[in-house]
């Protein structure tokens, strides 16, 4: 599925200043994997050593926290907009 990822200012130093990215993925683990390959500097800020989403990173699909949509099991829809928001909350793994 083609989705758009919104990159917060804090992360743009790892993305060559790109504020949005287009990706073609089906799930969150696939998305994170793709981001980590394209932008290795982002890796430690996305997932911790155990592969879980970092506690202080929140991920939204359109307006909803992805944890309410099934987390890792959520399958993206064409045109979904994914927003990464660091450190507004001490979240939990998806």
């Amino acid at each position: 599925m083609k989705i758009t990822v919104r990159i917060p200012t804090a992360f743009r130093r790892f993305t060559g200043n790109a504020d949005t990215l287009d990706c073609s993925v089906d799930t969150l683990p696939e998305l994170l994997g793709q981001l980590e390959v394209r932008y290795p500097g982002l890796q430690p800020h996305l997932r911790d050593a155990t592969g879980q989403v970092r506690p202080f990173l929140n991920i939204y699909v359109n307006e909803e926290d992805i944890r309410f949509l099934g987390g890792n099991n959520y399958r993206f829809h064409e045109g979904d907009e994914v927003t990464l928001v660091p450190s507004i909350a001490g979240g939990s793994p998806v």
Binding site: P55, N58, D65, R67, F68, I88, A89, G90, G91, S92
Partner: peptide, 23 residues
């Protein structure tokens, strides 16, 4: 870790489902 919730309560001043300092 904290699992976020959708708040349904009359205590709206405490209705934060994803608490910033919960951890």
């Amino acid at each position: 870790r904290i699992q976020p919730q959708k708040p349904v309560t009359i205590a709206r001043s405490l209705a934060i489902g994803n608490p910033a300092d919960g951890y």
